[in-house]
Amino acid sequence: MVNSLNERNFSGLGNYQRGAALLVSLVILLVLTVLALSSMQGTSLQERMVSSQRDAQIALEGAEFALQEAETVLSGGTLPTFQPSNGFYDEDDPAPVAVLDHATWAAPSGGGHGNGTRQAPMPKDEDGNDLLAANPRYFIKATPATGAASSAGFGLGVGAAGDSMQQSGLSGTVYRVVAFSSGASGQAGRAIEAYVVRAD
């Protein structure tokens, strides 16, 4: 009799312990699930950040590609006629100001030059695939002549560039070039600005 009573007590205690172990296991499983979800969200965020950074770098390289195209145009034998509609601004023509606005760089229907900017060639990879969502673009503005009263404020703190050239014994015309690319996604706008001297 005593033995059967003790057996019942022990078997009831075992059932109770098995229920507690199940509850603890479920709590641990819930904690692990929350940790895994949090880790996945962090990984996803880091992946988006890296992708955005890569696209920004591609956009910067696309803008540099357009800048090289502008330098090639300026180093040619003869310059095209300066018309603001085609991206060539004379010193008296107001150039675009919102250089990071995608609307400033919108290509005319059918592509090519127009809408106040010029189209650079599309950079391609070794298989001939386009590297950018759209052709990089640029515009060129002639800066005020040497000694001009307005030469003190035409760019990023490099006013009177012509005067500096004259003092150093150089002769030529200084052109402001602004180039833009929207990157591989079309969303990462990057603009760069440079001053190019064309020797007389």
Rank of each mutant, 00 (worst) to 15 (best):
M1R: 14
M1A: 13
M1H: 11
V2Y: 11
V2M: 14
N3F: 13
N3R: 15
S4A: 14
S4H: 13
L5N: 13
N6R: 13
N6S: 14
E7F: 14
N9M: 14
N9H: 12
N9V: 13
F10K: 06
F10V: 13
S11T: 09
G14P: 00
Y16R: 06
Q17C: 12
R18I: 05
R18M: 12
R18T: 07
G19F: 06
G19Q: 11
G19T: 08
A20K: 07
A20C: 10
L23D: 07
V24I: 15
V24R: 04
S25N: 04
S25F: 05
S25M: 08
L26K: 03
V27E: 01
I28L: 13
I28V: 12
L30Y: 03
L32D: 03
L32G: 09
L32E: 02
V34P: 00
V34Q: 09
L35M: 15
L35K: 03
A36F: 01
A36L: 13
A36E: 03
L37Q: 10
S38W: 02
S38C: 07
S39C: 07
M40G: 03
Q41K: 05
G42L: 10
T43M: 11
T43C: 01
S44M: 13
S44W: 04
S44D: 10
S44I: 04
L45V: 08
L45D: 08
Q46D: 07
E47D: 08
M49D: 07
S51E: 07
S51L: 05
S52H: 00
Q53G: 01
Q53T: 02
Q53K: 02
R54M: 02
A56Q: 01
A56S: 08
A56E: 01
